[in-house]
Simulated scan of single mutants.
Amino acid sequence: MTSSGSRLATLAENRWFKLVWIIPAGIVVLAVVVLAARGIRSLPDVQSFLTEYPGTTTLPDSAPMGIPAWLAWQHGLNAFFILFIIRSGWQIRTTKRPTMFWKRNNTGLIRTKTPPIKISLNLWLHITFDTLWVVNGVLFYVLLVATGQWLRLIPVTWEIFPNALSAGLQYASLNWPVEDGWVNYNALQTISYFLVVFVAAPLALATGLRMSPSWTSKRLSKLYPIAVARAVHFPVMIFFVAFIAVHVILVFATGALRNLNHMYAAQNADGWLGFWIFAGALALMIAAWFAAQPFVLRAIASLTGTVSR
C-alpha cells in the first residue's frame, strides 16, 4: 500500500471522519426542503393559514420581558459543557479498546462501602462534564422558576401548535417569521426550547444515571433495564446535536448581532458586544477541545483518582 493510500485508510478509520457524510447529505436535504416549502407556501389555502396563524402566541401578562444576565451566563456554560459531553459520549461509543483507565481514590471526603470501579478515561471525562452540566441545570431550573422565565418556555395555549407549523413553514421557505426573542419567542422556538429543557435534558440524566457504573440496585435494575436506557440515551444525544446545529444556523441567519446580544450580552441592541463575548467563548471552547489530549486529561484525572494503562 502506498503512503497516500495508508493515510486515506487511517483517515477513514478516524471516529470523526465517519461523520463527514452528514455535510453533503444535509445540504441535499436542505435544498429539497426549501424547494418543497416554497411550493407549498404559494398555495392559496396555505397563504390563508399563514395569515390566520402568523407563528407567535400571546404570553401571560405576568411573563417577564428580556433575557437576564444569569440566563446569558447559564447559556454560555451550558454550551461549553454540552460540547464535551457530546464529544466524550461519541468517543465512548466509537472506541473499541480504551487505553487509559481511571479509578477513584476511596479516601478523604469521598468514601463508599463499595470498592471503586475502574472506568475508561473517556467515561471519566463524560461523567465529569455530566456532573457540571447537572449542577448548572439545577441552578437554571431554580432561577427559571424564581424569576418567572419559565412562562416564556412552556406552551400555555393550544394555538401554539398551528403557529409552530406556520413558523416552521416560514423557516423552511427561507422567508423568516417576524419575531422578537427579547419580548417573546415564536411558537416553534417555544416548543423546541420546552423539549430541550423539560424533556430531553431530564431524559439524558435519567438514562445516563441508569448506565452509570455507580448504579448497583438489582431491584431497580429489573424495573428499569439498562437496555431501555441505552435505547433512549443515544437518540437523545442525536436530538441535542440536531437542535444545536439548527439553533446555531438560525442564530446567524436571522440577525446575528441582535441574537448574540440577546444570548451573550443580555441586552436588546444591534452592537458588537454580544459578538465579541461569543467570539471569546468560542475561542475558549476550541482551545479546550484541542487541549483535551490524553496526557492533559490524565494529569487532571490523577487529582481525584488513579490513572492506569
Rank of each mutant, 00 (worst) to 15 (best):
E13L: 03
A187V: 06
V46T: 11
R87C: 10
Y171Q: 04
A187E: 07
G255T: 07
H262G: 04
W150G: 01
S217L: 11
W21D: 04
R93Y: 09
N122K: 05
T306K: 15
R104D: 07
A187T: 02
Y185K: 08
L169D: 04
L209K: 03
Y264D: 01
L123I: 01
L174G: 05
A231G: 01
N184A: 13
A187M: 07
R7I: 11
W124T: 00
L220I: 10
N106C: 03
S3V: 15
T216L: 11
A281L: 14
N78T: 09
T56Q: 13
G5W: 08
T254F: 06
L35A: 14
Q189W: 14
L43V: 04
A231L: 06
H75V: 03
P115G: 05
L83W: 10
L59G: 02
G181H: 07
H126N: 05
L220G: 10
P24R: 08
T254Q: 15
A164V: 05
A187I: 08
I86R: 01
F17G: 06
L151H: 14
T94H: 05
V241M: 12
V28H: 02
V20D: 04
Q189E: 10
S48N: 12
A187C: 11
I82S: 06
T57R: 04
T131A: 11
R219H: 04
N184W: 10
